[in-house]
Structure formats: structure tokens, C-alpha cells
Nucleic acid binder design. Structure first.
Lengths: 334, 334
DNA sequence: GTGAAAGCGCTAACAT
DNA sequence: ATGTTAGCGCTTTCAC
């Protein structure tokens, strides 16, 4: 049986409320008694029961984190960032993996919502209405998704795409293919906007190659179509797709970067392990998780809609040049 | 404000206790009233407050999951297994990542322990004493680690290593190097036992190459020493190490599998994406997570030490042959 | 089969 | 500055 607040009170010879105060509002209690209480608590190994506290304060000290698929290395990074920051504030994290299922996602979110002070939804697949509904009932921070009126931390997709295009243009590329992600992906939609803007500014022909699963297999599937565009460089929805693409190109005997340059997005750990290593736009994944927690904490402390509505952080990507874009001053056609 | 049990009681025209019973012990309440209660609950979107329930039942309906490093793809797989199984039983999962820090691990475990019914510790780095101490205070299930008297789900390391050696022997290898994992790794220690047993039975020379970080960089670091042993094949602590090793070998112009064969352990997704693709021993990672939850649930239902002590599941690995062991009937020396 | 009452461990007025 | 009282939302005796 763990010690309760009453046990501490008895041992310290004070009332329960004094113990409560000594522990959560130390400033308001006499230094001497405070010491006595702390000693007693120490001796009993007292740990407040968070559930009981939550029952009365309405705060659980827990947050929920929902991600589409932990098997995609992008998400573990975000999770690590969330964890690390949450721990600093003594907040525990419920994690839920939706297996990329938009329906399951909403169910899980609803279930979690009851037990936490707030939720971080990372790259949610749910519809905008569903997300708004959830945001109505509970504190929500979005990561990698923007919904009007909901606090969010996103990546500067347009800026990232500009960097990728600028790099490729500098290497002489003028025909560039884009391998899109899932049709419902918010980031995919926004990346292509940035691509078109950059392409226009640079006199580049942009060739869309449709939508593919955000996976290795998706990249394998996209490769032939990307080649068929006649582009000299390909930008993909994410690194996993780029790596799948690399594999298929190799199988076909198409050399990267000699015949075709490839650029990914994310900079997952795997990207420096491929051959050739993958040029990519590094997204500050852990940082995003960390900031999401900070945003959520801010929302919890001040749930005033006026301050919060539209609160958002935008994180910038960083171009990481590796061998998959080599040096191709005279990019050959495959 | 979410609806409370009293709200439901009022709407259904019954007492709170009846509502409570109708929802948690449906059998014991009249069918008609039960229906009325359920209708009312439905209409109000009533969700029981788990914290309040936990306060009285002593059960939170939550479990904690602690892993060393989500960045190692092995762990997200286990986490997914845990999640999936926990969800089925309407149990929520707290996740903590210790960043491979044994001290932090114990701290985190202690903190989590207060808020959950039980803990799943995956590949814990803490000392046996610390783990025993924790297991004393709270319900614990270990994954990939064995401590006397603590329920655990482990992998059949010896069997896995036998398969790896048998495969290599069949290909003609007689000098095989082993790249070990962290000094404190339980599985590393047990894998080497299996290796020696299998090596003895097959007249194979086993060459230990020391201890390395369980990472890509660890594999890079190990490669040269592995080559220097004069072995014709290398087995590594895990796939990540094998992949790092592959990279370094390639940089040195050593061909795999022509000059040297490589076998990993785990079968992470990345292993089929390397060049050459990695032969490995597949560990049922998700399954391990799933079983860990089942074990924990069993412990919770029947905390009788006699039934539980020593409860354990052993999962078997499966050899996955890919190109990194090619066909080398006449394995050349590098 | 159902209701009334008590209380899980804690905090927050309200007194003092 | 400290103690007293009440109650968060729920389950569970104990009566009926």
C-alpha cells in the first residue's frame, strides 16, 4: 500500500490540507512546517495520487499523442521530441498508433480525450470537420496539418521545396518530376504548391507523377512512371518513397545521380545509409514534437480562445545534399 | 462539461448505483432498466471517468511501456504490437523512451508505476536488482530480458543463432565472426551462447569481435575488425549493426557476399532495402508486444505469485535468407 | 433488483 | 499560516 497524504499528515503532525499546500504551493506555508512535511513525505516515499488530484483539479497531467504509423521512421522522431519535452514538465504521454486508418483515428482520439488534458495529433488523416469537432471538445494541437482555428506546428513546405528546386536548378536540371504522397495528405498538397511556385520562378518544367503510398513500396511503384516523364531529377513525397524509387531504378540499371537525380523529404536516419546516400530536405522532427508540447502546455494554461486561436509554429527545413544528386552539370537523359 | 453518472441516473430515473451496475455488471440488473440506462447513457454521450473509477477500484485501465530507443526500428514494432493488443482490451498505453539510459530508465519506471496497473519493460538496460525492486512494487512484464521470478516474453536466441550458423555452414563457411552488442545487453549475452553451441556442433571457428553500439555507426565501427578476423561470414548483434557494417565494407571495396557474407538479427523493414538485401533472423516483434500485454493482463487478473512467478513466453525466430549471404559454395577470403 | 450511504485520495473554499 | 469542511465521479457495501 503506497502512503497517502493523510499518512504524511499524521507523521508530520499537521492537517492533510497543510501537506497538500506544502507540496503543491510551498510558498504559502511556514518554512519550518514545510520542512517537517517534506521530511515525512520523504520517509514514507509519498507520491501523490495523480488520479485523485485530477478528479478535483480537472487536470490529469497527461497528454495524448496520436500518430498514423510508428513504422514510418518519421513518427518515432516526433514521438521522441514529444516525450522529452513532456518529461521536463512532468507530463506523461499516452501514445496511440492508428495504422493509417482515418476512422480508427477518430475513435482513438475520442477515447483518449477523456483521460488527458490535451491531445497532439500528428499528421492526422481525419477530415477537417472531424478534427474541428474534436478540437471543440478538447485541447488539441496539430502537427503537420493545418485546420483553421486549431493551434498547430507545421513545416515550411514551400520553403523546403524551393530549396530542393534551387539545388537541382544549380546542377543544371530543367525537367523535374514530383512523386506525390497520399491524396488526403495535407503536406503533399502543400508541397506541390511550393514546387510549382519555385518551378515557375526558375523556368523549370514540373511533371506530376500522381499519388503513391508514403512507403518504400510506393516509391518502387512510382519509379517507372517518374522515369517515363523524361525528367532528369525527381523529388518525392518523403524519404521512404525516395528510397523505394532508388531501389527500382537500380534494378532497372538506371544510375543515380548520373542518369537521374533523386531528392527526398524528411531526412530519416535511413537516408544516409542508402547507396547513393539520399539528398533530402531535413525536417526538424523532434523539434516539432517538442514545440507541440509547448503549444499544448500554453493552451492548457490559458484556454482563452482569443490568445490561442490560430497559434502556430512553422519550422523550416534544411537541404541536406548527398550523393543522390551528385554533381550533374550536364544532366543526361536516362 | 461531459456527462456524469448522476446525469445518466437522473435522465433514466434511477439511482446512480443502478447506472453503475447497468454499465459494469449488466447481468445483475433488470433487462428493462438496463435498457433505459443504456439509452440515457447513449443520449448523453456518457463516458465513465476512469480516474474516478480507478480511485475506488484501484485499477486505472492503463499500462506503461518503456523502451530504450524508438529510433531503433525494432522498438516501434514492439510498441505497435502492444498498442494493438491493449486497445482490444480497452487499455491505454503510456509510452516512455529512455534514450538508452539505464538510470533514466529506473526514474521513468518509478514515475510511471504510480499511474498504471502494470508495466511492460522492453529490453530494459537497468540492473537485475533494480528490475527486481521494481517488480516487487508493481506488476511488471519483461520483454527481451529474463530476470528470475519476473514474467517475461523473450526470443529464442539460441535457436535463432543455430539457424544462422546452419545456414552459413551449408554455404561452406567455417570461420564466422560475431559482432556483439552492448556489454549490458541480455540478448547479446544469450546470443553468443547459442552461437558457441552451434559452432561447436558444426566444427565452426567462432571469432568474437567485441561490443558495439546497437546502431548503424556501431556496425561501421565493427567492420574493419570483423574483416581482420579472417572470417568468411559475420553475424551481427542486430540488423542496424549489419547495415552499418555493409556500408563500411562497400566503402572498402569488400564485396558482400562474394568476399564476406553478413547475417543480421531482427528483420527490420530496412533490411530488405539494403544492397545486398540482408539475410537475417526475423524476430516476431509485434507478437512479442502483443503477448506481453496478455501476460500483463493475466498477472493483473490473478496476482497470485504462485501462478505468475516464472510465467514466460518464448518466441522463435525465423531465418530470412537474402542476398547478403548469396550462394558461396566456395567462400573466398577477403 | 434497486436505493441510500460511505468513501477512494486529494484540493479548495472557508474559517480561524 | 493552519485546520475544518465539503466534494470531485465513481463503486460498493448494506439494507430493503
Amino acid at each position: 500500500m503506497p502512503a497517502t497524504l493523510r499518512d504524511v499528515a499524521r507523521l508530520a503532525g499537521v492537517s492533510p490540507s497543510t501537506v497538500s499546500r506544502a507540496l503543491s504551493t510551498p510558498a504559502v506555508v511556514n518554512a519550518a512546517t514545510r520542512a517537517r512535511v517534506q521530511a515525512a513525505a520523504e520517509r514514507l516515499g509519498y507520491q501523490p495520487n495523480r488520479a485523485a488530484r485530477g478528479l478535483i483539479t480537472g487536470r490529469t497531467g497527461n497528454i495524448g499523442l496520436v500518430v498514423p504509423d510508428l513504422a514510418n521512421p518519421f513518427f518515432p522522431s516526433v514521438v521522441k521530441g514529444v516525450q522529452a519535452r513532456a518529461r521536463q514538465s512532468d507530463v506523461a504521454v499516452f501514445l496511440a498508433d492508428t495504422d493509417e486508418d482515418a476512422v480508427e483515428e477518430v475513435v482513438l482520439v475520442r477515447a483518449l480525450a477523456k483521460q488527458v488534458d490535451g491531445l497532439i495529433l500528428c499528421s492526422p488523416r481525419a477530415s477537417e470537420e472531424d478534427l474541428l469537432a474534436v478540437a471543440q471538445e478538447t485541447n488539441v494541437v496539430l502537427v503537420n496539418r493545418l485546420v483553421e482555428g486549431v493551434p498547430a506546428v507545421t513545416f515550411d513546405n514551400e520553403g523546403g521545396m524551393r530549396q530542393a528546386i534551387a539545388h537541382l536548378v544549380a546542377l543544371g536540371h530543367r525537367r523535374i518530376a514530383w512523386v506525390g504522397g497520399p491524396r488526403t495528405s495535407w503536406s503533399s498538397a502543400h508541397r506541390i504548391i511550393g514546387l510549382y511556385a519555385a518551378a515557375n520562378d526558375n523556368g523549370v518544367d514540373l511533371l506530376e507523377v500522381g499519388h503513391f503510398a508514403p512507403t518504400y513500396d510506393g516509391g518502387m511503384a512510382a519509379a517507372d512512371q517518374a522515369v517515363a516523364t523524361g525528367a532528369t531529377a525527381v523529388v518525392t513525397y518523403n524519404d521512404l518513397v525516395a528510397i523505394g524509387l532508388l531501389a527500382r531504378l537500380h534494378a532497372r540499371g538506371i544510375s543515380v545521380p548520373d542518369d537521374l537525380s533523386v531528392v527526398g523529404i524528411d531526412d530519416i536516419a535511413m537516408s544516409r545509409m542508402t547507396r547513393p546516400a539520399l539528398t533530402t530536405v531535413r525536417l526538424p522532427k523532434q523539434k516539432a514534437g517538442q514545440i507541440a508540447v509547448e503549444l499544448l502546455l500554453a493552451v492548457l494554461d490559458d484556454p482563452d480562445p482569443d490568445t490561442i486561436i490560430g497559434t502556430r509554429g512553422t519550422l523550416h527545413g534544411e537541404l541536406i545534399v548527398r550523393d543522390s544528386t551528385g554533381v550533374a552539370s550536364d544532366p543526361a537523359r536516362p
